[in-house]
Nucleic acid binder design. Structure first.
Lengths: 217, 217
DNA sequence: CGGGGGATCACACCTATGTATAGTCGTGGC
DNA sequence: GCCACGACTATACATAGGTGTGATCCCCCG
């Protein structure tokens, strides 16, 4: 399944720090720098959202209480706009329900201030590792979808039908075309998708379905 | 994929309450009873572990601080012995790190005491719904595995090889047998697995793989 | 020791799949 | 108007898949 131009997922990770307190930003930047992690800081959620993110693995370290938006809303926004970078939350005024809410909504960690440097590092390192995993599967999915997009509409249709297990003649019946035509579209789909066997095509179709649902319904 | 004797997943759910405080057990039992939920109570983790669980959807409501074991260890134990029932934690003495730890390890909710009745109900109802989902996929998986076990060793071997996309003759070469024999085992596998098409067999093999890894390596 | 089941194989036959060659038709761009 | 491209079709041939019949061998169980 691995092939050709694989993007380096072992690029240098980048930690995004969002906190309105300048001294905290500085302290975190120093901490991360001390273990060789690059850091980008933002004073507000808006700043972060406005920045265009470099395509690198990383995580977000976020204060729950921000001038323009609370951390929980921020999390929701990230999901909405399709940013899957893991979030480490921190707060000076949090309680258990807040932390539980954040965790339920996908935060990978939640640290009360003050925290020990080591705890923050553990959280961030874990989050970065998770991001690496996420990027690998997302990369696979998007490359698969790219290939799928190169199929003509009919070829896509035929691919999805034959991978349900239908025979060529059944697909032909469903689409109101001849079996020969189905064979051709099917062969073209195999070629363009890079599937060497029918089993591979079935697996590709299965892997594609979640991605297709997420977009075109 | 749905078939024959489907076990009722809409059986009456059962809430397991584990708390050493008798008055709390009583209060929770009353609360759950008021919305028509059956409850089973235990004073210690050991009691719960010793009980043999009825095969019904449900969840566990657990006090973190127990006489014999803390809730976090308890969670680990449940995973070890393969009990996947969702856990709702509660505590009177918890802090954020404790709640975060519990959530990271699979708790579906974490409530500080005292809690509002409605919060507990929301947590438990959510947990039960999650258990229903879990049971559906677990049921499917175990039925699949049961069918797989009815295959002879050779048939299993052939099934796993042909579902990688290998042609019959390649499988024959790999196993050092003739292509005819492969066809026969393959046909037997299709029959016994109840796969009407090769695509179905591929999907079954894929669904089977996690289960097989979990057990026989 | 007889019977059953698993595993193996051969022959025969039919269906399904895959590909090449070759051609029609319609649409959209230059 | 010509061309490229996608969709569609047919004939023909080669290969792969699937099944039935019949048969051998081995092992375990009663």
């Amino acid at each position: 399944m691995a092939n050709g131009m694989r993007q380096a997922t072992n690029e240098k990770p980048l930690v995004h720090v969002v906190d309105d307190d300048a001294s905290m930003r500085g302290a975190l930047e120093g901490l991360f720098d001390s273990v060789g992690l690059q850091t980008q800081t933002y004073a507000t959620a808006k700043d972060f959202l406005a920045a265009n993110l470099s395509d690198r693995p990383g995580c977000i370290v976020l204060d729950v209480r921000l001038p323009d938006m609370n951390g929980l809303e921020f999390q929701t926004r990230l999901v909405q706009i399709g940013i899957g970078i893991p979030v480490v939350m921190m707060t000076g005024y949090g309680d258990i329900p807040m932390s539980v809410h954040a965790m339920k909504h996908g935060a990978v960690d939640f640290l009360p201030k003050p925290f020990r440097d080591q705890d923050m590092l553990d959280a961030v390192l874990g989050a970065i590792e998770r991001d690496r995993q996420r990027r690998v599967v997302e990369n696979d999915d998007s490359r698969l979808k790219e290939r799928f997009e190169t199929l003509s509409p009919r070829e896509q249709e035929v691919m999805l039908l034959v991978t349900t297990g239908k025979m060529n003649k059944q697909v032909a019946g469903d689409l109101g075309i001849s079996e020969i035509t189905v064979k051709i579209h099917r062969g073209a789909a195999m070629h363009k998708m890079g599937a060497r066997t029918y089993a591979e095509l079935v697996r590709m179709a299965d892997a594609l379905k979640p991605t297709l649902r997420k977009l075109g319904r």
